[in-house]
Write a protein that binds this DNA or RNA. Structure first.
Length: 934
RNA sequence: GGGCGCAUAGCUCAGUUGGUUAGAGCGCUGUCCUCACACGACAGAGGUCCCUGGUUCGAGUCCAGGUGCGCCCACCA
């Protein structure tokens, strides 16, 4: 037996993990027979971004997922936990760019070019992967490394392309010229979810375009006004009705505009002047108005967030701020500015980088969420194959039908609310790191359509301009925007033949060009549950299909929209299955003051540091106990240290038991309960096993953990082990309880339990040993009641000793009377003989110099001899009498209420009566005690 | 502007469908280095369950309103 007085996880954990891994049992195919017969149970690990290292949020997710997997594995399910990482497209590319800039490059992408730059990104991603895998191991995660996946590996790329193809064929992926969110800093589009709003103060200016223009308008974005093509007013607005339908041609800061006055109910007549300058190119709302009234779209801001030549030579190339103040000055000079007001504004900024996001009209790829399509799948209850539905409907259906349940439930509301507001999803990104869009353009088709060879068109800036280039050269030139009409077709690899013009790639030139853009990282992430299980590859998907739908998706609530919703969309569409039965959302891990952990605040707690200092088990406990789903958790090093203390406690309980067990006796099967304490602890253990298992099934991990900790510490260690030391002969019983306890703790703290397990003399790993079953026949309410009386008395005696400052070595005499409980006491007080020696007082009264101790109706006398302090005892009794009298009074008033007696359930009333009786008896006894002191 | 949540001991939080004198951990006070553990043992102090009103025999729990805090969504220009 090699159990040190203090448990040192350092060094042991890696070795234990290595043994688990070598056993092969992280892989469901190598699990014992009992699991092979079991129900499949699968969790897909949310793949962390390959951007460096794991943080406490990841650690929390892993702790919960490993808990679930270990719990279900021990219960005999065929458990698969698939680990993986996410290429995270923009996040990783930005990270690498930042590193390269720090290393001295000015514009890494320009300096390195696409291929060289990508090499650097891939290299960084690989290093990150290695770091994260090792951190995942440190946490004790029992995931199947033989099935490790990467959102950007060859098979996932294949799945992404297949999915893209399906959606393209179903008309759900479309190229469109629309207003998109443009990040001028990283020169890429963003999805709506990647745009945040920042509260800023802005100037709301009221002005007219020129002195002949009859209507004043207000704006915070003066610079966009070069692109105005209309002024919209409410159709019922009497002030402006007479202008509706008229066209004006004001000269705005040197640029001649063509402004149509339109009536549109979307305009709020009470805001500002009640007239709205319509800028269709740079505002989604304006674009909608423009569409209703067939207005022209005139872009005036370019991708570099500078003014386009259309604004006139005076403004072309100026930044937004420069333009804004210049225009304001010009308007002031001309006397056109009527008012300047400071207002609060929600400025759209990029989630990554924080630069203001511009809205520009561009040609991009979109997923159409509201467009009806013909369903390919025949597995959904609501729609048959061949019926029409929309992606939005599928998303709603998965949760509405209860096939996916979100924990905590309130996030279902949030989810539906988000779906309501969901617009088409822009999926093309102008970054280099990611799944290249599998669409190709045929120059032959394009040439035939336009009548010239190798031509391109730029649509940024509204008018189409044609550009001649050398073959193949243009698509790396970011300044040229290819326009693709009928020439576009899907191909996973380099196409050999154009499906339309049947043109072959023969002459060594490059007639086919792939779309230079890549896919939004969430496109591939959305396919995670099924792509990671081998879809669409026939063999792979067939082999893994038993695991789909997966059991639980465990992730942070911050990516419900980014990821969870999109997984539901993609999976239901592509496979006809909902991706997971339960979504368990954990909160954000914050510092002890509730602040986000960040580098600038220097308040980051690193999981690996904590594991090295306190062990993985303590770190896991600190993340799971004391946190509830969907709520943020405050973490501090002290909290982790506290759980380290507990792991040490469990270690020492085990140490005591294992050091004292005599092997011969411990071999006895079905150890029998001999004493009250034995019956009590077995009853408690079995009740606990039942409640604890139920709590885990209900995802109440914190509650389960607290329950088990309280049992382990306050019942087993503080009472039973102490009693066992004196009563003796409990080796087999103790060992059996310990074994059960190790099982129950294993999902929370796999390392220390497995380590102790090595010493209990069982074969095989605890990790796959069978989960304890609660036995009803062991649950023994009368014994629990009797034991609790004993506990109350012992506590009362200790209390008295402490209150009267009785020296620890002083032996006291405890006189019991004849009666059922007193007989029980005589039998069971032996373990507490150091507190008091019990004597049978027959039916005699209280000895002189003794105080009366009352516990749950049992009255005994503790002889304090000369140490009694009558004043103190009197004060104590008076205090207690006051409190009990109050309780009696409240019970009497309740029972005196006729309505209560008539309307409350009989058992409640009966319970109150009984309580009143007991309290009255106690009160009488206390008063008698007090009188006897006088 | 719309939506969601939170408010319980000094701190961090539990408190299931309304029903004991509202609980835990940490911290605090006192005693003890008792042969598993001082990362420990024993005992103790500490609460107007944010406020107001309502429903009910009964409210920390349900309803309405208010206050304070947090989050999400949203291009009234």
């Amino acid at each position: 037996m090699n159990l040190d007085p203090q448990y040192n996880p350092q060094g042991k954990e890696d070795e234990i993990y290595r043994q688990w891994e070598e056993s092969g049992m992280f892989n469901p195919d190598h699990l014992p027979e009992r699991n092979q017969q079991g129900e499949p149970y699968c969790i897909m690990m949310p793949p962390p971004n390959r951007t460096g290292t794991l943080h406490m949020g990841h650690a929390m997710g892993m702790a919960v997922q490993d808990l679930l997997i270990r719990f279900e594995r021990m219960r005999g399910k065929k458990t698969l936990w698939v680990p993986g990482t996410d290429h995270a497209a923009i996040a990783t590319q930005v990270k690498v760019e930042q590193i390269l800039i720090k290393e001295g490059m000015k514009d890494p992408r320009k300096e390195l070019g696409r291929e060289k730059f990508l090499e650097r990104v891939i290299d960084f991603a690989e290093k990150s992967r290695n770091t994260m895998v090792s951190q995942t191991r440190k946490m004790g995660s029992s995931c199947d490394w033989s099935r490790e996946r990467y959102t950007f590996d060859a098979e996932r790329n294949r799945a992404v392309y297949e999915l893209f193809k399906m959606m393209y064929e179903d008309g759900l992926i479309e190229r469109g010229y629309r207003i998109v969110n443009w990040d001028p800093q990283f020169q890429t589009t963003l999805s709506d979810d990647e745009v945040l709003t920042k509260d800023v103060r802005a100037k709301l200016l009221t002005f007219t375009y020129d002195k002949n223009f009859p209507i004043a308008i207000s704006t915070t974005r003066l610079e966009t006004k070069f692109g105005d093509t209309a002024v919209a007013v409410h159709p019922d607005d009497e002030r402006y009705q007479k202008y509706i339908g008229k066209i004006f041609e004001p000269v705005f800061c040197g640029k001649k505009l063509s402004i149509t006055i339109v009536g549109d109910a979307a305009v709020d007549p009470k805001f500002g002047t009640g007239a709205l300058g319509v800028t269709p190119a740079h505002s989604m709302i304006d674009a909608e108005i423009a569409e209703r009234h067939s207005l022209a779209t005139v872009p005036v801001i370019g991708k570099d967030a500078r003014m386009l030549p259309e604004c006139g030579s005076e403004f072309a190339g100026l930044s937004i701020e420069e333009t804004r103040s210049k225009v304001q000055n010009m308007l002031t000079e001309q006397g056109l500015l009527q008012a300047v007001e400071e207002i609060a504004q929600a400025l759209p900024v990029a989630e990554r980088g924080g630069a203001p996001v511009e809205q520009l009209p561009m040609e991009q790829w979109f997923v159409r969420v509201n467009k009806p399509f013909i369903l390919r799948q025949d597995t959904l209850e609501k729609w048959k194959k061949g019926q029409q539905t929309t992606l939005k409907e599928l998303m709603r259906y998965a949760v509405e039908s209860g096939q996916t349940r979100i924990v905590p439930e309130r996030f279902e509301k949030i989810y539906f609310h988000w779906i309501e507001n969901l617009h088409d999803w822009c999926i093309s990104r102008q970054i280099w790191f990611g799944h290249r869009i599998p669409m190709w353009y045929c120059h032959e088709c394009e040439s035939k359509a336009i009548g010239r060879s190798f031509v391109l068109a730029s649509r940024i800036g509204g008018a189409t301009s044609l550009v001649e280039t050398n073959s193949g050269a243009w698509f790396n030139d970011a300044s040229k925007e290819p326009r693709f009409g009928s020439s576009v077709f899907y191909s996973e690899k380099y196409p050999l033949r154009c499906p339309r013009c049947k043109h072959d790639d023969l002459g060594g030139q490059i007639p086919f060009v792939q779309d230079p853009d890549t896919l939004d990282t969430w496109f591939s992430a959305g396919a995670w549950t099924f792509s990671a299980l081998g879809w669409p590859d026939e063999g792979g998907w067939r082999a893994h299909r038993i695991y789909h739908p997966t059991a639980v998706l465990e992730t942070g609530y911050d990516i419900v929209f980014f990821w969870v919703a999109r997984m539901i969309l993609m999976t239901t569409y592509a496979t006809g299955q909902i991706p997971f039965r339960t979504v368990y959302l954990h909160g954000m891990v914050r510092d002890d003051q509730g602040r986000k952990m960040s580098k600038s605040l220097d308040n980051i707690i690193n999981p690996v540091d904590m594991i090295e200092k306190y062990g993985a088990d303590a770190t896991r406990l600190s993340l799971v106990i004391g946190s509830t789903p969907g709520n943020d958790v405050k973490l501090s090093e002290e909290k982790i240290a506290g759980f380290r203390n507990f792991t040490n406690k469990l270690w020492n309980i085990s140490r005591y038991i294992l050091l004292n067990v005599k092997s011969a006796e411990s071999d006895a099967k079905n150890p029998k309960a001999r004493t009250l304490a034995d019956r009590w602890i077995l009853s408690r253990l079995n009740t606990l096993t039942k409640d604890y298992t139920a709590a885990l099934e209900a995802y109440q991990f914190s509650r389960a953990g607290e329950m088990l900790r309280d049992f382990t510490w306050s019942e087993l260690a503080d009472w039973y082990v102490e009693i066992a030391k004196v009563e003796g002969g409990k080796d087999a019983l103790l060992l059996s309880i310990l074994k059960n306890l190790l099982h129950l703790w294993h999902p929370f703290m796999p390392f220390v339990t497995e380590e102790i397990w090595k010493t209990v003399g069982e074969k095989g790993a605890l990790m796959v040993d069978e989960w304890p079953k609660p036995e009803k026949k062991m649950m023994d309410a009368p014994s629990e009641k009797d034991f609790s009386i004993l506990q109350s008395l012992v506590v009362a005696i200790r209390n008295a000793r402490s209150g009267f400052s009785v020296p620890p070595k002083e032996l006291l005499r405890l006189t019991v009377r004849s009666g059922k409980f007193d007989a029980l006491l005589l039998e069971n007080m032996e373990p507490f003989k150091r507190l008091a020696r019990v004597v049978d007082g027959g039916f005699g009264g209280k000895p002189k110099g003794a105080i009366t101790i009352l516990a749950q109706g049992v009255e005994v006398y503790l002889d304090l001899g000369g140490m009694i302090d009558l004043g103190k005892e009197k004060a104590r009794l008076e205090k207690e009498i006051a409190s009990v009298s109050q309780h009696v009074a409240s019970l009497e008033s309740r029972l005196g209420n006729a309505d209560f007696v008539a309307r409350a359930p009989a058992e409640i009333v009966e319970g109150e009566r009984k309580k009143l009786e007991e309290s009255k008896a106690r009160l009488a006894a206390l008063e008698a005690q007090l009188n006897s002191l006088k």
